[in-house]
Amino acid sequence: MRLCIQAWTFPAIFDSAFISSAAFDRAAKPVLFVLLSLPLGWLAFAILGELNAPGSRLGADPAVEVVRFLGEWSIRLLLLTLSVSSVRRIARFPKVLQLRRMIGLFAFSYVVCHFTAYLGFLAGFDLVLIEEDLVERTYITVGFTGLLLLIPLAVTSTNGWRRRLGTTWRKLHRAIYLIVPLGLVHLLWLTKDQYGEVVLYSLIFVVLMLERVVNRRKAR
């Protein structure tokens, strides 16, 4: 994560001739795809290990661990998605915008996996328990709302939908400014103690929002 932030925030990295080359265009997306798949890959590896020797990689309470892991990466990738336009402006790196859809779709995938892991591993598809959780546990209600709001964004992420929706597309996708705080509140409310992580993620969100405000002022 730290490396990602450094890479994003060092404008010099993006000034090289490589960036403008056709090789970059060819390599960027596959490389990004592999990078963003790494956490899922690790998890798949851990789950396979779990099949052979329970408790080997995910501890004595693996369901919680899987859900937590996926939730953490969901937040990280949502923040990464939000950071793309800021990086484009700060680093004067317009090409990065080509990568935003993939990052956003990966974020969506992690959120879906997170929720599915909760449904299957943690709640055991017990509908009574799931309903009680969704209604009574506010942090789950909030997280679930965020997931629901993400669905239209993922569906309309294709070029076709983007064309069809025109200016509405931009308005629709501003929902991300609500979704990310919902994710952060979800994390805050499930944290019992040691708020360092929530504070860090919230700080990143606030910085990204401030950058947008500053940018708007400049544009006027």
Binding site: E50, L51, G55, A60, D61, A63, L129, D133
Partner: peptide, 18 residues
Amino acid sequence: PRWSQASERRLPSTLFNE
């Protein structure tokens, strides 16, 4: 507010047998 107390996971729990 955080956990249903109606049931519990007796550890060790595994992914496919909670």
